[in-house]
Design a protein around this nucleic acid. Sequence first.
DNA 1: TTGGCTGCAAATATTTTGCACTGGC
DNA 2: GCCAGTGCAAAATATTTGCAGCCAA
Lengths: 146, 146
Amino acid sequence: MPPTRFQSMLANLRTQGHRVTPQRLAVLRYLAESAEHPSVEDIYRAVKADFPTTSLATVYKTVALLKELGEAMELGFSDSGNRYDGLRPYPHPHLVCTRCRKIMDPDLEGIADLTAELARESGFRILTQRMDFFGICPDCQKNASP
Amino acid sequence: MPPTRFQSMLANLRTQGHRVTPQRLAVLRYLAESAEHPSVEDIYRAVKADFPTTSLATVYKTVALLKELGEAMELGFSDSGNRYDGLRPYPHPHLVCTRCRKIMDPDLEGIADLTAELARESGFRILTQRMDFFGICPDCQKNASP
DNA sequence: TTGGCTGCAAATATTTTGCACTGGC
DNA sequence: GCCAGTGCAAAATATTTGCAGCCAA
């Protein structure tokens, strides 16, 4: 069977000559099992449960490292903290609930075609892409608005 | 003929009971004639040429007001300053050059269909959308990379 | 053993806010 | 003349960095 995300991240760290510390292990583990696109604060809280002395700076440094290694993707939001995706660290669309801040991964076809068409018509060499849809998730639609 | 963007912005300000100050006029004028998606600093520099005592805070407050009125759209970037679009203040895709930071507006069909499909499949009520393609623009491709 | 990693605190960058003064209406 | 708007400086937010000590390899 294919390696888990956790195993991939760990292997990549080791291969590139980075040290495996308890703090990094805790960050890796949390990112590898979170489909919720956690914020640095989310990761920090979770990691402190395992390893109480962990600092916020170390979490920032670790996610930056994982980003460099291609093992995590940063979703920057200018109006709130950034979020991180350790499960699918490559460009893909997101559905963002503006009420509860949940972020989901929809299935969406045809993005590669769209990108290719755009590159052809504009002359840009397109390297990456970001596609976010903002709205109200089904759960928040049920729970009446105050 | 239809009103210019400048005229629309000004009319909207007046209609909503906001005062028309020289500083606001200068910001409006600059946004109405900029296809470059300027940053607050860009606007600040331009406005100071017309009206030297203008403060950065006033520029921030003015773009925030225009955003509220629907006369400007904010393009948030977590890793650099935000950018503003006064010409097309509604969601549309952007082509961002990561070398020279130029932002262009490509023509792209089928986004409404994509959004509708996504809403149907996910149950989200989609309110807005953000679509950015990052790469190297034709100009920067010519000027060899260092 | 040793240099990369951690944790703390200070620095940075961007945007927002409090408040006294001013000028548009 | 009134009060929204301005300008300044301070605050708030999010992230990065310098550095002394520590520990994974």
